[in-house]
């Protein structure tokens, strides 16, 4: 079985601190990590491989040369091959152009049965790239998968997490799934995995390699444009301030609660 996992390099948001004066993010020293939701995608792919001997897991990411590190990370957790889709021409891509580039790269790689993505990336939070890739590859997709019930050569049955429970969905193969946190507990890298990932050769693909239409990649291929970026004027309320001894402020605020009728 050929399994593909699409992953993304994101800033580690748990590291991020805010400059209290400007309200901006302090980005210095923020490390880049595998998008946390993609960790579940990698784990599920590796589990599927372990259950189906002879399978292969290929991880693929689009990004700058530094994004290679997330591929190595995935290799240390059991993926077999890493592919970096990297070209300056991809710069400034929105979700549509990203989905296009990744779908072209996947086509270039050849056969696949299952594609996994995390449900969304923690930096953009759009959740759009996964289904977008499925559309461009003209295959079925199931989003928010929380469990794979069974898989055969031709079809797969999964549970799709919904706001009010879950749907059991059967899909033909090939299929793209975006997975949620509930699906598994990702493993830690093994020593063998680490040593192998260090030695592994990461394949790099450019826009020309994957035969991408230059009109559909990068900024060129992005219908959405960032018009402006701004730090929101924080809703500053002329609020009442409570400062002082804990005993005093606690009774003052509780008195306030009484006043507004919640106690």
């Amino acid at each position: 079985m050929n399994i593909i996992v699409c992953i993304k390099q994101v800033p580690n948001t748990t590291d991020v601190k805010i400059d209290s004066e400007t309200g901006r993010l302090k980005r210095e020293g923020v490390e880049s990590i595998v998008n946390p939701f993609d960790e579940y995608a990698i784990e599920e792919a590796v589990r599927l491989k372990e259950k189906n001997p002879g399978s292969k897991v290929t991880v693929i990411t689009m990004g700058p040369p530094q994004a290679e590190s997330v591929l190595r990370d995935a290799l240390s957790k059991g993926a077999d091959e890493g592919v970096l889709v990297c070209d300056r021409a991809f710069g400034g891509a929105d979700t549509l152009a990203t989905a296009y580039a990744l779908s072209m790269a996947i086509k270039h790689l050849g056969n696949f049965d299952v594609i996994f993505c995390g449900k969304q990336a923690t930096d953009g939070d759009t959740a759009q790239v996964g289904p977008g890739i499925a559309e461009m590859l003209d295959i079925a997709h199931v989003a928010y998968v929380k469990k794979i019930n069974n898989i055969s050569d031709k079809s797969i049955t999964v549970e799709r997490l919904m706001e009010d429970g879950y749907d059991v969905i059967e899909s033909s193969l090939p299929v793209l799934m975006t997975v949620v946190k509930e699906i598994n507990i990702p493993r830690l890298p093994s020593l063998k995995g680490k040593i192998n990932s260090k030695k592994a050769v990461i394949k790099t693909l450019t826009a020309v390699d994957i035969g991408a239409d230059e009109k559909r990649i990068g900024l060129n291929g992005s219908p959405t444009q960032v018009k402006k970026v701004f730090t929101p004027t924080q809703k500053t309320v002329e609020g009442e301030k409570f400062v002082g001894e804990p005993d005093v402020v606690a009774s003052a605020i509780v008195a306030k609660f009484q006043e507004i009728g919640i106690v």
């Binding site: 301030k241 409570f242 605020i253 306030k256």
Partner: peptide, 26 residues
């Protein structure tokens, strides 16, 4: 911090000192 600026009632202090006392008062 932005939350304190946005708040109608802002309490400057250690939540571990303030919240238990609020609980006691209520």
């Amino acid at each position: 911090c932005p939350m304190m600026k946005a708040a109608n009632f802002s309490i400057e202090g250690d939540l571990f000192e303030v919240v238990p006392r609020m609980i006691k008062n209520i």
